[in-house]
Design a binder for these strands. Sequence first.
DNA 1: GCTTGACCCTGAAGTCGCTAGAGGGTTTAT
DNA 2: ATAAACCCTCTAGCGACTTCAGGGTCAAGC
Lengths: 154, 154
Amino acid sequence: MRIGELAKATGIDVETLRYYERVGLVQRPARQANGYRAYGQDAIERANFIRHCRTLDMGLGDIKRLLDFTSKPDADCFDVNHLLDEHLVRVRAKLKSLRTLEKQLARLRTQCDAGHRAADCGILQDLVAAAHGEACACHPSDGNSSLSKRKARE
Amino acid sequence: MRIGELAKATGIDVETLRYYERVGLVQRPARQANGYRAYGQDAIERANFIRHCRTLDMGLGDIKRLLDFTSKPDADCFDVNHLLDEHLVRVRAKLKSLRTLEKQLARLRTQCDAGHRAADCGILQDLVAAAHGEACACHPSDGNSSLSKRKARE
DNA sequence: GCTTGACCCTGAAGTCGCTAGAGGGTTTAT
DNA sequence: ATAAACCCTCTAGCGACTTCAGGGTCAAGC
C-alpha cells in the first residue's frame, strides 16, 4: 500500500502521515525500489488508532504513550486511566472558560444596534471603555487578568 | 514611561509588548537617548484595548482591524459587527465540539474498572476497537472525520 | 516517443501567540 | 565599586501541522 492509499483508507492527510513518521508516531515503513513508502495492513490500524485519539483531542505525546501500552499487554494500565483523567481535567477547564467567553461575546454583540458610524458603535465604545478600566458589557466587574504568564497548555 | 512600567500598568508581559510592536499591533514608541522605549499615556489605553480583546480570545489580526476602527470615527461599523459575529460562530463551534468531546472522554473513562493489566484495560480495548471501525464507547456510531483538511482556525 | 497529469520524494519554512535564551548595555541602590 | 534590576536585539522553541520549492516516477493517451 502506498501512502496515498493509506491516507484515503484512514482519512489522514498524506503530509500529516509523513509528519507522524518524522516525529516517531508511525513506524518507518519498508520502501519500494523507487523509494516510495510501502505499508502493510497493520499500518491502517495504527493510523486509525491515532486518528481516533486525535478526534478526542489528545496530544501526540499522549497518543504515543497509549500506543506503547497496546504493545505491552502485561503492563499496569493505571497510567492509561491517569492520562485520560488529566486530559478530562484539561478539557473541562477549557470548556468552562469557553462558556464564560461565549456569554461575554454574546452580551457584547448586543451593544451595537443603533448607528452605523464607528464613532457610535456600542461594541467599540465598550471595548474602549474597558481600556479605561470602566465596567463593560462583556466584563461587568472583573479583576483577574489571565493574560500572559500562563503555564499550562490550554 | 518605560516598557516595564507599561507592562505593570496593563498586565501585559514585557516580552509580549515587544512582540506586539514587532507585529505592528502597537506603534513604535519614541526612544530615549539610551535606546530605551519611551511611551506616552495613550500607549496604556491602546495596550489595554488589546489586552481586553485577547481575554475575549480574538486573534491579533482581528484586534488590529478593531484598532483601526477606533481611529476612524466615520467608518461604517458594519464590519465590527461582522467580525464579532464570525468570532462568536467560531467560539460556539468550538464549544459544541468540546461538549461532545467531554461526553466521549467521560464515557471512555468508565470503561476501565476491572483488571489492571493493559491487556484487560477497557479504555485501550475501546480505542483499538475504533481502529477496527467498530462502535466504541466514545464514538457509538459516527462517520464524520474532522481530521486534517481543516480550514478555519479553531 | 513524448507529453500530460497524478502521484511520490526530501528538506525547509511558515502558521499562531507568545516564551525563553544568549549575550550584551544601562541605571539605581547600597 | 559592585550587585541587582532593568533595558536592548536577535534567535529559536512550542504543537500539530501546512505549504513551498524543487525535484523523481509512472501509467495513459496522442
